[in-house]
Design a protein around this nucleic acid. Structure first.
Lengths: 192, 192
DNA sequence: TCAAAGTGTTGCTCTAGGGCAATACTTCTT
DNA sequence: AAGAAGTATTGCCCTAGAGCAACACTTTGA
């Protein structure tokens, strides 16, 4: 098997039982792309018609609000799928940008091809269901988090459950993920 | 067809093409239940093993935070599905309560039966996918909303897109849905 | 039918976090 | 190697919204 598909294959294998031969038949729908640091894959207000699997590096999914604030929804590190799911589903313009935080290597599949696989390959149907379920769970936790917890508690939560976000990314990005300003984040860190 | 299944049938019909005869075969998995005002269907910290379709009335999905605040995630009115999706999926104890806001009539299907239908009836597979997709989209909008908008702007958004929430429910519930206190909601209303 | 419990409003005060500005530090770029 | 651009920290002040208390008003239930 071509090296670039090993991580994707392992990912699918972890989620369900994929047939190796079948996988070799359809994996070519995923196209390899390398991204420079800060390269943008999708601009806000554009319709998103692809899904992405991250082989190496890290993607960031964020929105620029009217007041010019950056709001980050999600970081996709190695071995994760990521896309502007809302736009992919609804085919309305995305309110998110997708940007490589660092030099990255990704596999991209078009919306058509992806949903074709979802329809025809039961294992991929299951994987899509898993993606949706996990995305929903993560997002719901975030809602309860933002409503119920103080900024300091949210930071502590992040340290406990996603410490690599804190170690691998700039304060500015972490702050926009926590929904606070970099000033506040800097101050909170002294309270830990 | 038994009257109590008409709304469910129409709902499914709107989402996809269900076979009437097939529907009559499996609709008995959904059991009718009437709920008194304030009756609780699921308590926080219990595992949720059912899915609910609302025929009449309104259910509220909310969490009691440690500090005793109530945080509402979702209101399910007539013709909507609702469940503690996170717990249904993960089978971990729910962080949500499910409560009838008013006298209600619901159809309840057990988790086992529901996922059995998802697996065996392609139309229900599609409906579940739709439920997940819509739940994800709604929740993501809420995250961006809470992060990016002021309480007043969130209230205005609610008036525009879900006015029935404001007219049909108490201020206390609306406030807990907006993530503010009833005091603040009361004050904001004077600014409209 | 009348108490009791819940709901809405408003005045007062308090606090978490925002925003600006100054400074130091790091990293790109050429 | 040096200037430019971005990042982090900290002091100062400001504001949105929280929390409490008091009062009026509905609803509900025996």
């Amino acid at each position: 098997m071509n090296d670039v598909y090993v991580k994707l294959y392992d990912y699918l294998q972890r989620k369900t039982q994929v047939e190796k031969n079948a996988f070799l038949d359809y994996c070519h729908y995923f196209k390899l792309k390398t991204l420079k640091r800060n390269e943008v894959l999708l601009h806000q207000n554009t319709v998103c018609n692809f899904n992405i699997f991250v082989n190496k590096g890290c993607l960031r999914f964020y929105s620029n609000s009217e007041e010019g604030k950056e709001l980050t929804r999600y970081f996709a590190f190695e071995n994760k799928f990521g896309t502007s799911l809302t736009s992919l589903i609804s085919q309305e313009p995305s309110n998110e940008n997708i940007q490589a935080v660092e030099k990255s290597e990704v596999l991209i599949i078009s919306r058509n091809d992806f949903y074709h696989l979802v329809k025809t390959i039961p294992e991929i149907n299951l994987v899509y269901r898993d993606i949706l379920e996990m995305a929903y769970i993560t997002t719901t936790k975030r809602v309860y988090n933002f409503q119920g917890e103080s900024a300091l508690d949210r930071l502590k939560w992040l340290m406990k459950y996603q410490p690599f976000i804190l170690t691998r990314l700039s304060n500015k990005m972490v702050a926009s993920y926590l929904g606070i300003t970099p000033y506040t984040l800097s101050r909170l860190k002294t309270e830990l």
